[in-house]
Simulated scan of single mutants.
Amino acid sequence: MELDAKIYVAGHKGMVGSAVVRALKEKGYTRIVWRDSKELDLTQQSEVVDFFEKEQPDYVFLAAAKVGGIEANNSLRAEFLYENLMIQNNVIHQSYKYKVKKLLFFASSCIFPKYAPQPLKEDYLLTGALEPTNEPYAIAKIAGIKLCENYNRQYGCNFISVMPSNLYGPNDNYDLKHSHVLPALLRKFHEAKQGNLARVEVWGSGRPKREFLHVDDLAQASLHLMETYAGNVFVNIGTGEDLSIKALAELIQNIVGYKGEMIWNTDKPDGTPRKLLDVSLIHSLGWSHEMDLEEGIERVYREKFIDV
Score class of each variant (00 low, 15 high):
4 D>S: 15
6 K>H: 07
7 I>M: 00
8 Y>D: 00
9 V>E: 04
11 G>M: 03
15 M>R: 02
17 G>V: 06
17 G>R: 08
18 S>G: 12
19 A>G: 05
22 R>D: 12
23 A>W: 00
24 L>K: 00
27 K>A: 13
31 R>I: 01
36 D>R: 13
46 S>P: 02
54 K>W: 04
54 K>T: 13
56 Q>I: 09
63 A>N: 12
64 A>G: 11
66 K>L: 09
67 V>I: 10
70 I>W: 07
71 E>M: 06
74 N>D: 14
75 S>T: 15
75 S>N: 15
81 L>G: 12
82 Y>K: 14
83 E>L: 12
85 L>T: 13
85 L>G: 09
87 I>R: 11
88 Q>L: 09
95 S>M: 03
95 S>A: 15
96 Y>P: 04
97 K>A: 09
98 Y>C: 02
103 L>F: 10
103 L>H: 11
109 S>N: 12
117 P>G: 09
118 Q>P: 03
123 D>K: 13
123 D>S: 10
123 D>H: 10
123 D>F: 06
126 L>V: 07
127 T>A: 01
128 G>P: 06
128 G>W: 02
132 P>C: 10
135 E>P: 05
135 E>I: 07
142 I>E: 01
144 G>D: 05
147 L>F: 11
149 E>K: 15
152 N>Q: 12
153 R>G: 04
158 N>D: 15
161 S>L: 04
171 N>F: 04
174 Y>Q: 08
176 L>W: 05
180 H>S: 14
184 A>R: 11
188 K>C: 05
195 G>F: 03
197 L>C: 11
199 R>N: 09
201 E>V: 15
203 W>H: 11
205 S>V: 08
207 R>I: 13
209 K>F: 01
221 A>N: 11
223 L>C: 12
224 H>M: 10
231 G>Y: 01
231 G>D: 05
236 N>W: 02
236 N>Q: 09
242 D>H: 11
242 D>A: 15
244 S>D: 02
246 K>V: 00
249 A>K: 03
251 L>N: 03
252 I>R: 03
253 Q>L: 02
254 N>R: 11
264 W>S: 14
271 G>P: 07
274 R>N: 09
276 L>W: 01
278 D>C: 08
279 V>A: 03
280 S>A: 04
281 L>M: 10
283 H>V: 06
284 S>W: 00
286 G>S: 05
287 W>N: 01
289 H>D: 03
290 E>S: 14
292 D>M: 08
298 E>H: 09
300 V>C: 09
303 E>H: 12
308 V>W: 07
